[in-house]
């Protein structure tokens, strides 16, 4: 295989290094400094001492070298805001985001694929029209507004669902957690759901026009069998690629969803770290997200080969 994949891996590694340098340079060259130096009751002298103790007076190159050297040894550093190891912070937050991302992806798949397939089969029928309009709205709706509106409806007005948190520390069990997960997962999944519906539909429309499907139909193979045996498999191949693109986006989208619903995940960690200029945390998150993007597209390539035997690398 793997010549092609290996070269891609090498390219990706270079990319990660470049991204880390750019990010570091950006942060370090910015005016001001980490929030810990700007507490209202910290005087200028104390702030200067803290800055020195944090090594922020050193040249940027020295700071980057120090950061990279530690990273090579597997040390992501410690948060400037609270002295906790960055690896610990990310470890504690990763689960919450993964849970949210998986839930929203699952929800998106469960909703989007059947709708997309059905739309394609009944092309231009009333179902297709409604589904297309719905998907169109789903792509355009700002998810932070959707989140607030859902809070207004389900928490404020109806009182059915909690407006934030995970329910993990409350006295509830899995049911309680599910109730907490429902709105954030839906909000985060909306755009994915809409895009998947569109891709599935158009991919299925193309496949249904192809010769082998027509041949199967002409031979009198029942519609259901044509769909499941022939069309679906081929129609979903492009959809897999799209999922590879959408998964990393879920992590970016999480920044907003998590902020609305007080969800203790990586997205909110990113927003907080950006606002507090907590350099080690920002750098570590940059790495994590970049690696995630690369791994996702990598996995998609491999999956692609598995699903479609015609594709071979090497």
């Amino acid at each position: 295989m793997p010549k092609y994949l290996l070269s891609r891996l090498a390219q990706s590694a270079v990319l990660v290094v470049i991204v880390s340098i750019v990010m570091f340079a950006l942060i370090a060259s910015a005016p001001g400094g980490p929030a810990i130096l700007y507490q209202e009751d910290v005087d200028a002298e104390a702030a200067a001492t803290m800055r020195r103790n944090l090594g922020l007076d050193d040249p940027i190159v020295v700071q980057y070298a120090r950061w990279a050297a530690a990273l090579v040894q597997g040390d992501l550093g410690t948060s400037l805001s609270n002295s906790r190891p960055v690896a610990m912070l990310i470890g504690q937050r990763f689960g919450a985001t993964a849970q949210l991302a998986l839930a929203s992806l699952g929800l998106a798949l469960v909703v989007a694929i059947p709708i997309g397939v059905l739309s394609a089969v009944r092309r231009n029928g009333w179902f297709d029209r409604i589904a297309t309009a719905g998907a169109f709205m789903g792509v355009s709706i700002p998810n932070f507004w959707l989140g607030i509106m859902m809070i207004v409806l389900f928490s404020v007005t109806l009182g059915w669902l909690p407006s934030g948190g995970t329910g993990a520390t409350g006295d509830g069990g899995w049911l309680e957690r599910l109730r907490h997960l429902a709105m954030p997962a839906f909000v985060l999944g909306t755009s994915t759901m809409a895009q998947l519906t569109r891709y599935t539909r158009s991919s299925m429309v193309t496949v249904l026009r192809e010769d082998f499907v027509r041949t199967a139909r002409a031979k009198g193979v029942p519609q259901r069998t044509v769909l499941t045996r022939h069309a679906l498999r081929n129609g979903l191949i492009p959809v897999v690629t799209v999922i590879g693109v959408l998964v990393p986006r879920l992590f970016s989208g999480a920044a907003i969803t998590e902020s609305i619903f007080s969800w203790p995940g990586l997205g909110r960690l990113a927003v907080d770290a950006a606002l507090q200029r907590d350099f080690p945390v920002i750098m570590a998150l940059t790495l994590v997200v970049s690696v995630l993007v690369i791994v996702a597209s990598f996995v998609v390539d491999v999956l692609y080969a598995v699903i479609d035997p015609r594709i071979r690398y090497g």
Binding site: L80, Q92, R93, T166, T169
Partner: peptide
């Protein structure tokens, strides 16, 4: 270290009426 030694803030020892059990970032 301006925000405290890592080993202390991850396992703080005091004399107070309550003692540290667990901290999860962003949660509790």
């Amino acid at each position: 270290v301006p925000s405290g030694p890592t080993d202390f803030v991850t396992n703080p020892i005091g004399t107070g009426p309550f003692r540290f059990v667990e901290q999860v970032s962003g949660s509790h």
